[in-house]
Amino acid sequence: MNARTNESWLEDLRTTGPVRDAALDDLHAIVSKGLPYALSRWLSPDDPLFTPLVEEVSQETLLRVLDQLDTFEGRSMFTTWVHKIAIRIALTELRRKRWQDSSLDELVDNEENPAPERLMADPQAGPETSTERADMLTRIRRILDEELTEKQRQALVLLGLQDLPMEEAARIMKTNRNALYKLLHDARLRLKRRLAAEDLNAQEVLSAFESR
């Protein structure tokens, strides 16, 4: 495989015929070689899903690269940009699958066992909790009730309580990952400003939470 510059990658992929085919073959080999490193924290190479996933993602990556070729600005190596696209495709799929599997496990568990403890937990402080902690939690819950919009609270529940990946939570809320991040940023800013207005900061609140 010839090492290409960014410019020659773009030139070869924009042409037609055997030159383009060779570039696509080379790119496929590069993505297929790199992906297992990216997936190593997620999936064992012995997992039966591993090889088909690498192939599926590699193919999808090539299609997306060709579609987005004009958006490459040359601020990194072309192959790093391609790996970035492959990772987004692969991790989106893995997160979706992992969440679906865990939801299914929870559903099966619930048929035979009580709901997970954290979902059943009494939101009020338990007897072992200090008064300072209990008071602070009550105060923060009141602030959250007053400051958060319904959508912000829904996002917190989906991401923090139900552990959904960003893409899945965004899909349920009929938005996208970017807008969801902005929604949560607005929520954090509102809380931060409200705490400041009440002469509190995050560190003080956390200290009170730690006083068990």
Binding site: P123, I140, L144, L156, L161
Partner: peptide, 14 residues
């Protein structure tokens, strides 16, 4: 926010 567990609120504040 009663359905939000303490741990989630703590992470949010963090």
């Amino acid at each position: 926010t009663n359905q939000l567990p303490d741990e989630l609120i703590e992470n949010l504040i963090r």
